[in-house]
Amino acid sequence: MMQVRKIHVSTTVNGEPREFLCEPGQVLSDALRNNLEMTGTKEGCTTGDCGACSVLLDDALVCSCLVLAAEAEGRRVATIEGVAQDGRLHPIQQQLLEHAGLQCGICTPGVVVAAKALLEENPDPSEEEVRFWLAGNLCRCTGYDKIILAVLAAASEIRGA
């Protein structure tokens, strides 16, 4: 076995400076969850197919399981833990609750992060646009119906606010 030197990473998570040591092959979702104890980011597949680990990396929506933790050096990471602000849920979070848009809830953090990225880019998406944007967020419980309704309702709420 070759001796693996850990890598020191200085990054920004939800606006706060954070540091951690990671293995070269460790992915960002793992580092967030197990090095920084931010387990809101979920891992459903670790191959980029389920979207449960969605985060923003320098404002780009990505699967954090397909980002090496070391790549976060000097970059900005935004996770589910930073979505609710000042003790208030984001409209997407609130509308998911109002519409029963979650059952088991394991996909929910990824859905929230991805939907928020959509609404920041497109404040008035069609149902079809929401569906295609969220195609990478697998949900096995809801059949997506109530998730889509919640995102559309949140978009409308944000536009009206």
Binding site: G48, L57, C63, N137
Partner: peptide, 9 residues
């Protein structure tokens, strides 16, 4: 190619 998330990379 891939999802919105994959498009980011």
């Amino acid at each position: 190619i891939g999802s919105s998330q994959v498009q980011g990379r």
